[in-house]
Simulated assay, not measured.
Amino acid sequence: MDKKDIALTIPTLYPNEIVSIIVGDFKLTKMYLLLIVVLTLVIVTYLVLQLPVFGRLPKGKRLEKLRQLPNYGNGAIENLSPTPTKPEDVSWGQMLSKVIKGNVNGVPPKAILPLVPDFSPSESLKMTWFGHSSYLIQVDGLNLLVDPVFSARTSPFQFIGTQNFPGTDFIKAEDLPSLDIVLITHDHYDHLDYGTILKLKNKTKHFITSLGAGSHLERWGIKPDQLTELAWGETAELMGLSFTAAPARHFTGRKFKRNQTLWSSFVLKTKIQRLYLGGDSGYDTHFKNIGQTYGPFDLAILECGQYNDMWPYIHMFPEEVVQASIDLGAQCLLPVHWGKFKLAIHDWDDPIKRVTAKADELGVQLVTPQLGQTFSLENKPQTAWWKEL
């Protein structure tokens, strides 16, 4: 074959054809790169979601019991009343815009000054509030800790999320006395904190929680014989105390799938007192029903904070908190779920100002302890300490 024959076998490429080949190769390479990026993100997301902090969804007998609940349907637990995530006239875009905008008054202007707790054993009832929904009940010689969160952020990772208010990190899990019972109302991060549970599990005799949430605790090393899970209406007698799980109007979930574990309020009976531990809840008729069935109560501990018109069904406004305490037949009201974390866009002290005003109007007796202040029902703190900041 001579040079002329060889030349005839090589196709002639015009400039526009060369450009087309180059562009085609670039598009193909770009598509492959995009595919690799997407697959990498999918794999990383999957691996991250397997981390222990997210807990574990119920399965086996635990899941079967959940499916037998009268308010279980369409693969999830439902509230007693229809409870949409948001009103129909509110868009997700509006919610996101307002949350991003935030509120400069959502954090106290100065550090909160807590008091030094008194953890000495006690037969008579005394309590210590640590901010938000964490509090210690000491009664009948026992130590009962509710919804303990002692991490800096209510988040699966401590490098994201709003940080606790200055001055509110005055107590660590290691500082607490030995605990007889830890009670967890539901599995949200501001009530069930992975880091705190790891520090408490070896100093706690027993854990009580809503049905299904025990799956998280077991993954974190809590033994099944250390764990009691209750559905609404069920009662457990432990160490001389009586715990009854009761309805609440809320939701659960530590990942994307909601309402796979139960959320509850709890009725606590000691030798002498009857307390209502509210957990998180929007206002509804269940307060009246609980008051008629289990009340009256010496004290109602109700969430009062992190509310907004954009999610009015899952958290109470302060005025509703006061009405709920009346519905329950409570002699006095301790408003919690405020004073430590900014999880909504209202002013940091808006909850206590509004609940105080409504309580004064309706003649409801409030208990307003400082963070870290140990108190009894015979000596109820009623100081307006938030006004000093």
Rank of each mutant, 00 (worst) to 15 (best):
Q273K: 06
N379W: 11
L69C: 06
V38E: 11
Q68W: 13
F130C: 06
Y14V: 07
K199C: 00
V367Y: 10
P156V: 11
L328V: 10
H346I: 12
G221I: 07
D25S: 15
M316H: 04
E378D: 08
R62D: 03
N379I: 12
K3E: 12
N74I: 14
L268N: 11
V107W: 03
D175F: 08
L333P: 09
S122Q: 14
E303L: 00
K110E: 01
L51P: 10
E234M: 01
R153A: 12
E123C: 13
Y276W: 05
W92I: 04
N79F: 02
Q323V: 15
E320T: 03
P52T: 04
T85R: 06
F266E: 00
I326R: 15
N379P: 08
T368Y: 03
W311P: 10
A213F: 13
L366I: 01
K205W: 15
G295M: 09
T228H: 01
I301Y: 03
L238E: 10
Y189N: 05
M127P: 13
P296T: 03
K199Y: 04
P82I: 12
F157W: 12
A7M: 09
Q382M: 05
G282I: 01
I160K: 05
L192R: 00
D349W: 06
L34H: 05
Y72E: 12
F317Q: 15
L47R: 04
N143L: 14
L35A: 15
T368H: 02
N308G: 12
L39E: 09
F119G: 07
D187L: 01
H250F: 04
G221C: 13
W385R: 02
H186L: 06
I181V: 06
R249A: 07
D5H: 14
I43F: 06
D298H: 09
S124R: 07
P117Y: 08
Q331K: 11
L262N: 01
K255M: 02
L262T: 03
K223L: 10
K201Y: 09
L47T: 14
G372Y: 13
K271W: 01
Q158S: 00
P121V: 04
N105C: 00
L69Q: 13
F165H: 07
G339V: 10
G106T: 07
F119S: 00
I272E: 03
A300R: 05
I22E: 15
L277Y: 11
L198M: 07
T235I: 04
S133L: 00
D347H: 07
L192F: 11
D175G: 12
N289Q: 13
T40S: 13
D140A: 12
G24W: 14
M310N: 09
K223H: 01
H188M: 10
Q163H: 10
D140F: 05
K3T: 06
